[in-house]
């Protein structure tokens, strides 16, 4: 009883003291911020909370799924709303989706361009209507507020140099085949171009084939079958992306050329890439890690949301880091897909 009374009394004293402090603080307000760290958070929250991010990948595969998972986890934490549209690899549907989203006026629009040209006009229109645009990994001809993704030419050069190390200078036949993705996608186009520049400087390397596979393992298998028939002494295959390369690797294996034909892949670090490497189907894999890329996208979103300048003011780049996966020890550079 008495204990209880005491605590009430002490609470009241604290209350009186608090009121006094508040009065004092308001009297000298401009001179002294209450809590600079709290203010910072308040500013951050004001800038990001309740904002809407629209996200249009080319489809939701393993790579895009990982990006989405990471983004969603962070955005939920910050109170950012994310809407996603899945065009399922249909470019006309993707264009419709982007056009419609522009009318819905999200704060940020994130796109993965299937080609350099398809969305260019709409991305410009989006920025003109005040939406900040981030392009992920596959860019377009239109520069926007931010690009997040691999430094694609660097990927191409790194892989090409690695190929030369393995096949150039008299090691093997020097014959190389390149498996492109979608020929007009920036990711595939730029990587192939950069690699070709490196190859052209080394006379011991001969690129016997450079064909698009449309991100499709079956197509890659067909292409590889033809290439192997025409060039039984092929030394290396450079492929711009992991999943499509699985088809090529199977063909090489079935032809009994595993080991002779070395497969170099640039990919996003999805689990299958590391599995293939550990089975010896891939020779080397350069992983740009979709999980960390997802975080980079989140960072770009946070930057743009806190930047008071209007859409189209900046041209920021968030190039992600690449990691070589050459053995089982490098498993950490592949992400794991959480079971849902």
């Amino acid at each position: 009883m008495s204990n209880n009374t005491n605590s009430i009394l002490s609470f009241m004293r604290a209350g009186v003291a608090g009121v006094a402090l508040t009065i004092a603080a308001s009297a000298f307000a401009p001179a002294q911020a209450a809590d600079p760290r709290a203010d910072l958070y308040a500013k951050f929250e004001k800038a990001v909370k309740g904002k809407t991010v629209a996200w249009v990948p080319v489809w939701v595969g393993v790579l895009e799924g990982e990006w989405t998972r990471v983004m969603k986890a962070h955005f939920d934490d910050y109170g950012i709303k994310m809407v996603m549209r899945d065009p399922n690899l249909k470019s006309d549907v993707q264009l419709q989706a982007v056009s419609t989203l522009i009318n819905e006026k999200p704060d940020i629009l994130i796109v993965q361009n299937p080609t350099t040209t398809l969305l260019a006009r709409e991305l410009k229109r989006a920025m003109e209507s005040g939406i900040k645009v981030i392009q992920v990994n596959m860019a377009s001809n239109q520069l926007t507020d931010a690009y997040v993704g691999a430094d694609v030419p660097k990927l191409g050069r790194s892989i090409a140099n690695e190929v030369i190390k393995a096949c150039g200078g008299g090691k093997g036949s020097g014959k190389i085949a390149i498996l492109q993705g979608e020929a007009t996608a920036a990711y595939s186009f730029d990587m192939t171009k950069a690699a070709m520049e490196v190859f052209s400087k080394d006379p011991s390397i001969k690129v016997v084939s450079s064909q698009p596979t449309n991100w499709d393992a079956n197509k890659a298998a067909e292409v590889t079958t033809n290439v192997l028939q025409q060039n039984p002494d092929l030394c290396g295959i450079m492929s711009v992306w992991g999943p499509q390369t699985a088809g090529a690797a199977q063909v090489v294996k079935n032809a009994g050329k595993q080991g002779q034909v070395k497969i170099f892949v640039a990919s996003d670090g999805q689990p299958a890439d590391c599995d293939m490497l550990e089975q010896g189907l891939f020779y080397k894999n350069l992983s740009y890690r979709a999980d960390t890329q997802g975080e980079a996208i989140v960072n770009a979103v946070l930057t743009l949301l806190q930047d008071p300048r209007p859409a189209g003011s900046t041209q920021l780049a968030y190039y992600t880091t690449n990691y070589w996966v050459s053995s089982k020890a490098d498993r950490q550079y592949c992400f794991t897909v959480p079971k849902e």
Binding site: L89, K90, S91, D92, L95, P114, T115, T117, L118, A120, R121, E182, A183, T184, P212, N214
Partner: peptide, 13 residues
């Protein structure tokens, strides 16, 4: 008309 609108000739077109 598609070319005028999409400005793109992708493999899935």
């Amino acid at each position: 008309l598609y070319a005028a609108r999409q400005n793109s000739a992708g493999t899935d077109t």
